[in-house]
Amino acid sequence: MQPESRTPVTLRESGDGLIRAGVTTFRRELLIAFREKQDVINPLVFFVLIVSLFPLGISPETEFLRDAGAGIIWVAALLAILLSLNMLFRNDYADGYLEQWVLSPQPLAMMALVRVSAVWVASVVPLLLLVPLLGLMLHLPAERIGVLTLTLLMGSPVLLLIGAIGAALTVSVRNSGMLLALLMTPFYVPVLIFGTGAVTAFGQGASITGHLAILGAMLALAIVLAPLAIAAGLRMSVANG
């Protein structure tokens, strides 16, 4: 080991390089997801299992599945996202990276948004790619699969962002998995109602712009407000550690 540091003591201005830090945060999340594949694959397998058990458990008839299919896929996706929430900050909290991340001279809310986006890309996008396949399995007509995918595309970021608030608040609590699910489910209900509502309305030949507008409003609100709450939650959790 060297007895001297190579870099001189320098008094720096407050945080620069927002884009550099954002890119780093994004890449790190993707890299970890790539290395720890089971964290990504477990919710996916769970998602496919739920959807494929419904026809066996209730009825494999085409008419039933065509009416219920969108709801089944939405609920399964919601549960899969709920399942992956617990891992969002857990490992980084346990090994101490989270406190280093909170202490970096960057706006924490922006970093939190970047991080949740990376998680969305790594674990929700594969799930969305499976939706057309599962839709076919449940005899959904092609146009309805299109609407279903669109609603999930708008709804899943909302689920993840709201869930991340809960994950940030409970990361320092031991065995918080069930607590997190209980806390988050009430907040997920409106997203579920308007998501499946759009597909049902489409099936009945009604207009879906109203449903999509409300989903879009929830998405916009979540993108703006959730990162602030996530940042505050993380600061509180790190303070307890």
Binding site: G15, D95, G96, Y97, E99, S104
Partner: peptide, 14 residues
């Protein structure tokens, strides 16, 4: 925070 380095009990190594 731009001018402070903190090393805690937990090393922060992933």
């Amino acid at each position: 925070q731009a001018n402070m380095l903190f090393l805690g009990h937990r090393a922060g190594i992933t």
